[in-house]
């Protein structure tokens, strides 16, 4: 009984989000009879896969009070590099993926080192990385949209299905589970949260904040690289502009999922629900045949609403106070 209620309390954020998600689904299924079909739901999951995969690693930076804006450029570059290794240099596809992952890890490590050792804010470091990685991607790909025709097993990563469910969905759920365990059940997870909650206190308690942050940015780049490889395989394309703007979707998913950008707490499952929610909203707009211009509008509104809710401010109280202002001014006279 006691443990049950504790478990319930611990997962309050996720449960609340899940409730909102179910509500959204009910609304969408009432609006459109095409919504609640296996095909449509699979499609939504499929479309949120890339964001979902990136989120599993990118969430750690906000938990430490930082941010990683380089994930989209990293993903685009990863696809291009994997293609070069496989199709230009003729490497085995597994070897190519492994080398790409090592490069991704190296770039993340560099982000972490510049942030911690040279004391440049993560926002600036990763924005610079976003810019130069995009440049490198353009350079390597010549700015072309390169179609990837082979090898066949590589293409299966993105378009293959297992028991009728696309493989990227399996990859995403595997990473969500791993990341959830990493955050909630391991020493590393505890240290990450501690660094975000109070770096000085964490340091005096034996946590090495620099080392923790370097690992955090490395993980973030690795999952972005994985997303990039899945994306290249899924779209059969290596293209520098393939993931443009995805970093904002990733951050949206993370904040909608209840992670504070101030650090000290976070939920991987919440971020996944956040990503799915954004996917459903876009899907709903599609089903209603709304122009695609509405998608960014909806996403923007969702970010604001989520952040307002996360602040724990009572909206009616704020509005009441706002409207009470002129009266209050008169009373002060």
């Amino acid at each position: 009984m006691n443990t049950k209620s504790a478990l319930f309390k611990e997962h309050m954020v996720e449960l609340r989000l899940f409730g909102v998600l179910l509500g959204l689904m009910v609304v969408l299924s009432l609006i459109s009879d095409r919504f609640l079909t296996v095909d449509n739901l699979t499609n939504v999951l499929w479309s949120v896969c890339l964001i979902g995969i990136m989120t599993t690693g990118a969430i750690y930076a906000p938990i430490t009070g930082g941010i990683d804006l380089s994930v989209a450029s990293m993903a685009a570059l990863a696809g291009i590099l994997a293609n070069v290794f496989m199709n230009t240099l003729g490497m085995n596809w597994i070897v190519a993926i492994l080398i790409t992952l090592v490069i991704g890890a190296g770039i993340g490590w560099l982000n972490g080192v510049v942030t911690t050792k040279f004391l440049v804010p993560a926002f600036i470091v990763t924005m610079a990385a976003k810019t130069y990685l995009f440049g490198v991607a353009m350079l390597v790909s010549n700015g072309d949209q390169i179609t990837i025709m082979e090898p066949a097993p590589f293409l299966q990563i993105g378009i293959g299905k297992l028991l009728g469910i696309p493989i990227p969905i399996y990859i995403m759920f595997t990473l969500v589970i791993l990341s959830h365990i990493l955050l909630k059940k391991t020493v590393f997870g505890r240290r990450t949260i501690a660094v975000g909650a109070n770096e000085v206190a964490a340091k005096l308690t034996g946590v090495n904040p620099d080392r923790t942050r370097i690992i955090v940015y490395t993980i973030s780049s690795v999952t972005a690289t994985i997303a990039g490889i899945v994306m290249a395989s899924l779209t059969q394309q290596a293209y520098a502009m393939n993931a443009t703007g995805y970093e904002l979707d990733v951050i949206t998913a993370i904040v909608v999922g209840g992670t504070s950008l101030m650090g000290g707490s976070g939920s991987v499952v919440g971020a996944l629900i956040g990503a799915v929610m954004v996917g459903f909203i876009n899907n709903g707009l599609n089903l209603l045949d709304m122009p695609s211009a509405f998608h960014p509008i909806a996403t923007g509104i969702v970010i604001l609403v989520a952040l307002i809710m996360n602040q724990g401010v009572s909206v009616p109280a704020v509005l009441k106070r706002w409207f009470a202002r002129p009266g209050a001014a008169e009373a002060a006279k």
């Binding site: 949260i193 501690a194 909650a197 109070n198 000085v200 206190a201 964490a202 005096l204 000290g264 707490s265």
Partner: peptide, 9 residues
Amino acid sequence: RLQGIMGGI
């Protein structure tokens, strides 16, 4: 406050 506790956890 600054060095001892992690207030948010």
